[in-house]
Amino acid sequence: MDAAIFDCPKNWTRFLPPGTRRIRRKEELTEHIWPLLALTPEGCRALAGESGRIVCRLLLVPGDLPALPAQIQAEAVASYGLSPRDSLTLSSLTEPVLCVQRALPRPDGTVIDAQEFPLPPLPGPVEAMLPLLGLWLLRRPLTEGRLP
C-alpha cells in the first residue's frame, strides 16, 4: 500500500484512490511506514493519548488540530481545512474549488504547485470530504489540470 486513511467513513471506501487502504484499527497504523497517511478529524481524536510509533513520509491532517498526535513521525505535513493557512482548502463552497495554497510534496517526489481545481459534484459536503480530495490530489497523476 502506498497510502492510507485512518478512520474514514465506510461510504468513502469506493471513492478511495487505487492503492489507498482504509484503516480502522489504530494498531494497523504502526505496521507499515506509509508514503502518504491521511487522518480524518475523528482519526486524530482517536489517536489522542495512544502509544506506538506511526511513521510516514507525508501526513495529511486537519488544520484545526491544536497539535499533532505525539506518536506520529512525518517528513512533511500538509493540512486541510477552511482556514487560509491550510495547505488544502476551498476557495468557494457554493461552486466548490479545491485550492492548493502552497507547493505540496507528493509521495513520488514531485511537487504540486499552488493552483485551483474545480470540483465535480460530490457525494457529500465538500468541506467534510477534504481528506479524500487531498488523497486523490496527492496520489493520482494530474491530467488536464483537474482531479480525476
Rank of each mutant, 00 (worst) to 15 (best):
T13W: 00
W12L: 10
E95R: 14
F6V: 07
D64V: 08
W12M: 02
D7W: 06
L90I: 10
K10Y: 10
C56E: 03
L65Q: 05
T20Q: 01
I54Y: 03
Y80R: 08
C44P: 02
P69G: 06
R53W: 05
S87E: 14
S91K: 10
K10N: 09
L47D: 01
G81C: 12
S83M: 04
L68E: 12
L93K: 13
V97Q: 11
L93A: 13
E75T: 14
L82V: 04
E31C: 06
L16A: 03
L98I: 11
E50L: 00
E50K: 10
L88I: 14
D64S: 12
P35H: 10
V97Y: 01
K26E: 11
L90C: 09
K26M: 00
E31W: 05
I33Y: 14
L16S: 02
L16Q: 03
R22Q: 11
C44Y: 02
S91I: 00
R85L: 03
R53S: 13
P17K: 00
L58E: 12
A46Y: 15
R24C: 07
A76P: 04
A48C: 09
L29I: 10
L39Y: 08
G81E: 07
I5Q: 02
S79T: 15
L60H: 08
E28N: 12
L36S: 05
L60S: 09
A38H: 04
P62M: 07
T13N: 13
F15H: 15
P35L: 00
G49A: 06
R85H: 14
H32N: 09
I33S: 15
E95I: 03
R85P: 03
P41I: 07
P17A: 02
L36T: 10
A46R: 15
S92F: 05
E50D: 08
R45G: 00
Q71H: 08
W34V: 08
L47I: 02
V61Q: 00
